[in-house]
Amino acid sequence: MKFTEEHEWLRPEGDIVTVGITTHAAEQLGDIVFVELPEAGRSVSKGDEVVVIESVKAASDILAPLDGEIVEVNPALTDNPALVNEDAMGGAWFFKMRPANMADVDGYMDEAAYQAMIG
């Protein structure tokens, strides 16, 4: 598993990468009340705003970590946004994408580096 400075986690499996946010990020955001997901099939560029997360307090954007295509989104989050607070690293994944270049994943931090970043 890899981690971005934006507190996303990336789990590569075959030619697909599953993306979510870290438990640390979910704690910082507070109680999530709404998640807006992209459409499956959408082509995205690294840095595009692809997911909107709203907590009681504020809205935050999740950025596409890689160039590629969104192939699947997590329908459980639409019905139960609080899942992000309960299971950020597992059941509350946001989307799966097919990266244009799988090797780009390697540029991100490993867990030790991420833990060091958040202190």
């Binding site: 507070g30 109680d31 009340v33 907590s55 009681v56 307090k57």
Partner: peptide, 12 residues
């Protein structure tokens, strides 16, 4: 203090 351990939802 913007929130305590309970968080905004439970505090509310």
């Amino acid at each position: 203090p913007v929130q305590y351990g309970l968080g905004v939802m439970k505090e509310h």
